[in-house]
Design a protein around this nucleic acid. Structure first.
Lengths: 160, 160
DNA sequence: GGTACCGTACTCGGATAAGCAATGTCCGAGTTCGTTGGG
DNA sequence: CCCAACGAACTCGGACATTGCTTATCCGAGTACGGTACC
C-alpha cells in the first residue's frame, strides 16, 4: 500500500507553476528538468491533472501547461484523486457472506459490513485532512524555509 | 494505491476468533473455510499477525491459531500495520533538492519538505482514526445486524 | 512593401514495453495423538 | 492392567511460481512560428 510517486511529482510541479506570475504555459521538458524527472512519464501525470481540471494544456510550439485554477482553490485531495483515482483504499469483497460462516451466520447483508464501515471512517478522516489543505497553504509553508525558491523558479523557467 | 486484500481477511478472521469463548486453537483450514479463502495464502497473513503479536500459533495436531490479546486491546491500526507493514503511504524522495529548481532554489533542507508535512498530517489523521477503533467495537457493530453470527461461528468451528 | 503560402520545429496525447510488489501455491520441519508391544 | 516406545497424521512455517499494477518509454497527431515566393 504505497502512494504512487506521481503524486509527489504532481504536487511539486503544481507548486512550481504556482510561483509563476504570468500565464504563459510551461512545456513538460522544462518542468521535468526542474526536478530531474523522466520527461515522458511526468507528461503522463500532467495529462491526468488536465483531465481532473487542475491544469490546462496548450499544444504546438510555445505550448505547455498552466494552472487552471488559483492555488488557493486546489486541495491536496484534488491532486491525490487526480493521480490515484477516486477508488477507496479499502475494497470490501463481502467475504462476510461467503464460506461456512457466511452461510450459517445469517444477518442483514443490506447494511454495510462493519469492517468496511470502520475502514471507511478512517479513510474519510484522511480525505478530509487532505481536502483541508490547499496548494496555496503548502506553498506558503515551503516559502518559509526556502524564501528564494519562487524567484529561482521564475528564473529557471525564463520568466525574469 | 489499494490496501492489500489480506487486511480484510485478517480482520474477519480475528473477528471470528473473538467470538470463541474457549482458548482452543483453530487451524488455518477451518478459518479459511469459514470465509471461502485460499488456505495457504490466508496462512501467510496469519503468520504476519503472529509476528505482530496479535495471534499465537500452536504447531502439530490439534494446533492452530488463537488470539494473543483480548479484542478490546486490538485496534484496527494494529491489524493494518501487521499486514501492510508500518511504511507510510507517501514516501518523500526529496525531489525538491533535485533538478534546476533544487539547485538554484536553495532553502533549508534540514526541515521536512512542506509537501511531505502535508501528506503526513493527513496520514496521521487516518492512523488515529484506525487506532481509535478496537476489534471489540467492530464486533459489537457487526453483532447488531447479525446477532446469530457469533453462535454460528462457534458451531461451525465445532465449539458447541 | 505587404500578404498568403509552405515547411519546419516543437508540443501534447495516447499506445506500447519493462520492473516490481502483491497474489497464489507448494513442500518440508516439528509436534501431538493413537496404537502397539512389552513388563 | 499399566507404561513406554513407535508410527502416522496433522499443523505451522517458509521457499517457490504467477498475476496485476506501477513505472518507464516511444512514436504519431496537431499547432504555432519563421521563411519565402508572389502580388
Amino acid at each position: 500500500m504505497r502512494m504512487s510517486q506521481g503524486v509527489e511529482w504532481a504536487v511539486h510541479t503544481l507548486l512550481a507553476l504556482s510561483c509563476l506570475e504570468d500565464d504563459q504555459p510551461v512545456p513538460t521538458a522544462t518542468l521535468a528538468a526542474g526536478h530531474d524527472l523522466p520527461r515522458s512519464y511526468l507528461n503522463k501525470q500532467l495529462q491526468r491533472l488536465v483531465k481532473a481540471g487542475l491544469l490546462t494544456s496548450e499544444p504546438g510550439a510555445q505550448g505547455g501547461f498552466r494552472l487552471a485554477r488559483p492555488p488557493a482553490s486546489i486541495t491536496m485531495l484534488d491532486v491525490v484523486e487526480a493521480i490515484e483515482g477516486d477508488a477507496r483504499l479499502f475494497r470490501c469483497t463481502e467475504i462476510r457472506q461467503c464460506g461456512t460462516i457466511g452461510r450459517h451466520g445469517g444477518g442483514d447483508f443490506s447494511v454495510p459490513c462493519a469492517v468496511t464501515n470502520s475502514m471507511r471512517k478512517a479513510e474519510e478522516a484522511w480525505r478530509e485532512a487532505l481536502a483541508g489543505q490547499t496548494l496555496a497553504a503548502v506553498l506558503a509553508e515551503a516559502n518559509e524555509h526556502a524564501p528564494a525558491m519562487a524567484r529561482a523558479i521564475r528564473q529557471v523557467f525564463g520568466r525574469e
